[in-house]
């Protein structure tokens, strides 16, 4: 690319850099504000004195939250969900993508399966029938209710399928000649060669499981079984605003422990904050992966 060094050109670039910087900070400020509140004294927080830096710095809210049994229990359920859910999801994605990556000539059932799975992306039964099915499957209140219903991710399988198709056919043919079966070829050739694509999908699946809250809220009968985000939904986001008048609502927001809520919000965002910078490297590939076809 060629850039002009004229005065208007330089002026534009300076203004542009300034604008983009402001935009980036705009994305960051709300989070910094919440972080600052979480480290502030509750009086300073209630008085609305906290901007982007803690006022009356202390760790009381974190100490309180990390000792709260409900919070820790929800955190462990979330960790269980992320590890178990990601493992199940990825296993199914890999085993689904491999046969569907075959050509229809080599796998006669392919066309039927493709339609079968693509239809699930287009049509859905909606909330109530979905709930009823999980209920009659006897999964309510069990961790499997959070894992099995969403375990088949057709979109991810399609991304991986396209990646599989890009791998050299000769490798597979050579392995067949040497007497390897489909199972061996999948795990010894396809999976190791697809590590970049798989890493993308694994990270996205983990983030997805960590962030899910609705299923936990609906499918768990007791709050003791809520994963972290569902638990936060009940704690941080109050629905009872409908029952109070406006002046009540605003004073309610203050007497409720604002610093404690902020600390919980930040703790729930922390794993994502640690992981997401690494996603960039992968996900551009992932996005391109899905869009480019021969």
């Amino acid at each position: 690319m060629v850039h002009s060094s004229t005065l208007p050109g330089r002026l534009f670039r300076a203004a542009n850099a300034f604008f983009l910087l402001a935009l980036a900070l705009l994305c960051l400020f709300p989070l910094v504000n919440v972080l600052a509140v979480s480290f502030s004294s509750s009086t300073a927080a209630s008085a609305g004195m906290v901007k982007l830096w803690p006022v009356g710095f202390n760790l009381a809210s974190y100490r309180f939250v990390l000792q709260k049994p409900e919070f820790m229990r929800a955190l462990f359920i979330s960790l269980e969900r992320v590890s178990l859910g990601t493992a199940v999801n990825m296993l199914l994605t890999v085993t689904l993508a491999y046969p569907l990556a075959k050509e229809s000539v080599k796998f006669r059932g392919r066309t039927f399966y493709v339609w079968f799975f693509v239809l699930t992306m287009l049509v859905s039964g909606g909330l109530i029938p979905w709930y009823m099915v999980i209920k009659s499957a006897g999964l309510l209140d069990s961790i499997w209710a959070l894992i099995l219903p969403g375990a088949v991710n057709v979109y991810n399988a399609v991304l991986l399928l396209n990646f599989f198709r890009g791998l050299p056919k000769e490798l597979e043919e050579a392995a067949f000649v040497d007497g390897a079966g489909h199972w061996t070829i999948l795990w010894r050739i396809f999976v190791p060669l697809s590590m970049p694509a798989l890493a993308t999908l694994i990270l996205f699946t983990m983030v997805g499981h960590w962030n899910s809250w609705f299923d936990g809220m609906i499918l768990m009968n007791t709050p003791e079984h809520y994963p972290l985000q569902s638990y936060l939904q009940t704690v941080v986001i109050s629905h009872d605003l409908s029952l109070v008048t406006m002046s009540d609502a605003s004073s309610l927001a203050e007497v409720s422990d604002r610093t404690m809520k902020s600390a919980q919000i930040f703790l729930a965002a922390l794993p994502i904050l640690c992981v997401y910078p690494f996603l960039q490297r992968f996900f551009i590939k992932g996005v391109v992966l899905g869009s480019v076809k021969e």
Binding site: P129, V133, A151, V152, W183
Partner: peptide
């Protein structure tokens, strides 16, 4: 073997994607 590989996903999708559709 290819059918076997699809089978787990097939069963789960039948139950949790097609089940609710019939539940309509």
């Amino acid at each position: 073997p290819l059918h076997l590989l699809v089978l787990p996903s097939f069963v789960l999708a039948l139950l949790f994607s097609y089940g609710p559709i019939f539940g309509l």
